[in-house]
Amino acid sequence: MKRLLKKEELNRLLLGLMKEYDVIAPIDEEGLILFRPVTKVEQVLWDYPNSLKPVKEFFLPPREVLFQFKRGKVQPANLSLKKRVIWGVRPCDARSLLLLDKVFLDSTQDVYYREKRKSTLLVGLSCNHPEKSCFCTSFASGPHHKEGMDLLIADLEEGIFLLESNSPEGEQLLKGRGKEVNKIDEKIRTKIKEKTERKIERKLKPSQFLERLTNGFDSSYWEKASRQCISCGICRYLCPTCHCFDIADEEGERVRFWDGCSFRNFTKMTSGENPRFGKRERFKQWYYHKFGYFKENHGVFLCVGCGRCLRNCPVKIDFSEVLQQLPAQAQTPAREG
């Protein structure tokens, strides 16, 4: 279903949602754009570059209690959640959840993730001002894609919004609101969409990645490409599709929390053995997991082109260029060590 809403009507929709659901939306929190629980329409940002943290934090939280133990009894965390809406999700982030589903909702379902997914509606906002670091169009997505959302809001500018449902729940939200969408509105929408897509200059050729990665596993290229890397966790943590975690016991609770393959102790065993000790190996693993192994196992790349890795890298590593420049032919093996 498609409907045309004015800004006031959209605000009314949001206000209505706030009464019924816990609403999470992008706000400016001391200079950081973050998705946070909101209670007032005025708090919500309308025109914003994508949030610092991806919405994965509401499904795979940075820290999550799996269960507690009290006097020898295991008490599972309360999984029931009030119905919630994440408002203003960008298409890239919405798509990332479909990729995470492949990991957490496979044959061994992760109940913590599943319950959060089940109780969350995604209301997306199309992206009219992509950043230089964005490259969603290279990964089967785009600034106006509705994949993974219940409802997509396309900003037609001048205070008019085209809303398009993408699920029965989304359709329910739209019913009886705004007015019908006519051909002219559709044309305007297409125009804006195409204009935005043209703004995304960063274009990758993913069709070549798999073969190049397969050939280049031992390439000296990785030694060079990884040199600037400082092995922090920013690109991993802020990536909407990175999902590696650690589990530990902390003060009567078993918690799971974000972890990343860039850290030297990620694969370090108690015996001291560490198959990916070197910076080059850790740097490389990220690419191989996202663009090699995940593709082989699930048929898609584990990347949505949101550009957060590029924007937030402390030493400005151009992650998409690292991929693009992967040599087509296998190179001489890298030096040992």
Binding site: T108, F245, I247, R256, T267, M269, E273
Partner: peptide
Amino acid sequence: EMKMKCGLGKCGRC
């Protein structure tokens, strides 16, 4: 042998 946490192919380290 590999460092493992979840045992189910999710946590990523193995």
